[in-house]
């Protein structure tokens, strides 16, 4: 297996990093580490299709494909392995992948689904499901029981979800093509909802080098308007006691803390609360921000998590778990 390390630009010293300098004061003396992390390609993570076999049963297949000697189990999930970015492997063309024994995802993308902790026989909504990796993870965690309504506005992107359903053998997914900001009321209530909204994707720059070049004059306010509408509608459909995971792959507080704060302001802090996230063993996270520019956020925003790439050799991410504490009059 050969090594192919793509040389990345030295972000810290190029205009490429300009859009992220607005976060420099948040990171303070970690800024150089952050820049260094972004200059490296992203490790690959593969997770076991536990509806089909156990991680232990998958191991010999990884060995046979020459992957196991390079693989490290995730510190916080026994079912997934991390593989170095330097490996020149087309993971999606290997037999265990084609036979639906594993799926590929970035490590941080596994976190909101894991934190949402869906249970078999529950009713789950995934508001923005495509391309479907998180949906599939939820389906496996539910052991193929219950219902996942996997919604996305884009029919083209839903094809990717369908392909994952076929390969992994998932029975509990109903796909819908709808504007998540405007679900009809009679869609019913859900035990848990994944609200993984479209965002500026700043945190994905390690796998998509071009993403930062699109951020000049990025309209965070316009994007956050859509994010607020989707989160608001989702939280209204939670059953009392139900939990939603709001997640993005961006560092921008306008798309993270501000969205959560403003939506809970609108729905009433008595009816919803931001609850602590479960501990990710061996994985460093930072609390959500309480201040950004001239804004302040509710103290419970510290229960949300920010994931910075240099802490765990990942992409960037944000997750807030929101619980509906009581029924709300509409």
């Amino acid at each position: 297996m050969s090594s192919s390390h793509t040389p990345y630009p030295k972000h810290a010293t190029t205009p490429y990093m300009e859009p992220l300098k607005r976060y420099q004061h948040l990171l303070q003396d970690e800024w150089d580490d952050f820049c260094d992390a972004l200059s490296k390609p992203l490790p690959q993570v593969l997770w076991t299709n536990t509806t089909r076999l156990t991680a232990s049963e998958l191991e010999p297949w990884l060995d046979q494909c020459g992957l196991l000697e390079h693989a490290t189990r995730l510190s916080w999930s026994e079912d997934a392995w991390k593989l170095p970015a330097s490996l020149d492997v087309a993971y999606g063309t290997l037999l265990p992948f084609l036979a639906g024994l594993y799926h590929l995802q970035e490590e941080v993308s596994l976190i909101p689904g894991w934190m949402l902790d869906p249970q078999p026989y529950e009713r789950i909504l995934d508001t923005c499901a495509a391309p479907g990796g998180k949906t599939a993870q939820l389906a496996c965690l539910m052991r193929n029981h219950g219902t996942i309504v996997a919604n996305d506005r884009s029919p083209g992107r839903l094809r990717a979800v369908r392909s994952i359903i076929d390969r992994l053998g998932l029975l509990n997914i109903a796909m819908s093509e709808y504007n998540a900001a405007n679900f009809p009321r009679d869609i019913g209530t859900f035990d848990r909802i994944l609200v993984d909204v479209p965002c500026s994707c700043e945190g994905t720059s390690r796998k998509n080098k071009r993403v930062l070049t699109t951020l000049e004059n990025y309209d965070y306010e316009n994007q956050s308007r859509l994010q607020r509408a989707i989160l608001l509608r989702a939280l209204e459909q939670l059953r009392p006691g139900g939990i939603a995971a709001y997640s993005t792959c961006t560092y921008a507080p306008e798309e993270n803390e501000r969205v959560v704060h403003q939506v809970l302001d609108q729905l009433g802090w008595d009816n919803y609360e931001i609850i602590p996230t479960p501990e990710l063993k061996g994985f460093k996270t930072m609390p959500g921000l309480l201040h950004w520019e001239d804004e302040s956020y509710d103290a419970s925003m510290e229960n949300a998590i920010r994931i910075w790439p240099h802490h765990n050799d990942t992409g960037g991410f944000f997750v807030a778990l929101i619980q509906k504490t009581q029924e709300v009059s509409q």
Binding site: N151, P155, G169, M175, S176, E177
Partner: peptide, 16 residues
Amino acid sequence: SMQPPRRPEPISMGLP
């Protein structure tokens, strides 16, 4: 145990 919503009507359900 599948309980899909009536609206929006699913465009597909389960495993083809």
